[in-house]
Write a protein that binds this DNA or RNA. Structure first.
Lengths: 208, 208
DNA sequence: CGATGATTCAAACGTTCGTTTGAATCATCT
DNA sequence: AGATGATTCAAACGAACGTTTGAATCATCG
């Protein structure tokens, strides 16, 4: 996944794994089924942990809305757990999951919605309760922005890293990154609503 | 670019363009040089427009710091100009530029830093002046988050779109999306600093 | 017009890919 | 030990890729 789905050959995988080339087709059927299993194995526990985290928060809140930071942390904290796996598996797993969203391969486009469905529904509910004045459309877009930032950050594909004037110190510490990410996202979610959009030449019928 | 660099064959490109397969190698030398030219042709004007926009703002400000929203708009507005090109070129160009950051192909990793260098430097300067109390490290990360959100949004690879409960109305209108994006990013940039990170078991020498 | 250089074209080259095959090897059980 | 089913392996297959080639076509100009 450091090179994307199509550019990663089964020959490379099997060689690195120390197994025979034909093993993939014997055990998984085809390359597509292999990557599907990889994602289910990585994404399944991750999203399950997110939902479990949210369950615990909501149980503790006893019907009261959760705080924005709490909700975001329920999404982010399980990622940190993955990142702590022994090198380089942790880092690469993050890249895998982060790139999944922008991976053009058609295969992934079928896997991801199924894997993320419950997570998105649950977090949208929680955020709707935490931000009762936010229009639904606006919230959905802000969730979209939030997922984008998170997925992009996980890829580690740092646009600024390669530029000389922007040298960082603690680039590798996932915990530090996430600690910076949460306030950023929370403020974004809480941002004042954008200026009233003018539906040009469309008469009336504007949402309250 | 709807399918990524490696998955896009020269045969597909030349067939769609109505030219001979060998034309690519004749005129560009190789596939890599072709994509390089595509990016320079798309990214060059876009980033030039961003810098020009910033120039104009700074000239008008006469030495006073710019507003956060102004700075963000200087990054975002030129994107809208691209999106307005006739269908489907506008949409696809955005996907191309958005995916560039997460594209695993090694080739792009050499092109992008050169193309974005000046933009990043200039905007970091402007943001530093607009947010004088923000530590340098923090600002760099927030710029990172900002670029991530923008690039992810441009890909149109909507993680939420495919989920039934999250149907949107105005998904295609790039202007509306950007109008939502700016307050989100501005609030993120202005967010209160994250809690003091505890450098565990490392004695003293903490930045002011 | 006819020569010259640039461009286009169909065909082929050498690689690499995912997958298949059939024999060899291993594990398990009577 | 010997039979049986699961797994491994080296080898090959057909397809698709980027690139090269050499002839055909085009444009330009003395």
């Amino acid at each position: 996944m450091q090179q994307g789905y199509v550019a990663t050959s089964l020959r490379g995988i099997t060689a690195k794994a120390g197994v025979n080339l034909a093993a993939v087709n014997y055990h998984f059927g085809c390359k597509e089924a292999l990557i599907r299993e990889v994602f289910e194995r990585r994404l399944g526990p991750l999203n399950a942990a997110r939902i479990a985290h949210l369950d615990k928060l909501e149980a503790a809140a006893r019907g009261r809305p959760l705080g924005i930071e709490q909700i975001i942390e329920a999404i982010v904290a399980p990622v940190l757990h993955v990142s702590k796996e022994p090198r380089p598996r942790g880092t690469i797993s993050l890249q895998l999951l982060g790139r999944a969203f922008s991976e053009p391969a058609e295969t992934l486009r079928e896997i991801l919605p199924a894997q993320y469905r419950e997570v998105v529904i649950r977090f949208k509910q929680a955020l709707t309760r935490a931000l009762p004045d936010m229009p639904d459309q606006e919230l959905i877009w802000r969730m979209h922005f939030m997922f984008g930032t998170l997925s992009y950050t996980m890829t580690g594909n740092d646009a600024l890293k390669l530029i000389a004037t922007c040298n960082r110190e603690d680039g590798d510490d996932a915990v530090a990154i996430m600690r910076r990410l949460i306030p950023f996202l929370a403020a974004g979610l809480r941002a004042p609503l954008p200026a009233l959009q003018i539906k040009r030449s469309l008469p009336g019928r504007r949402a309250a």
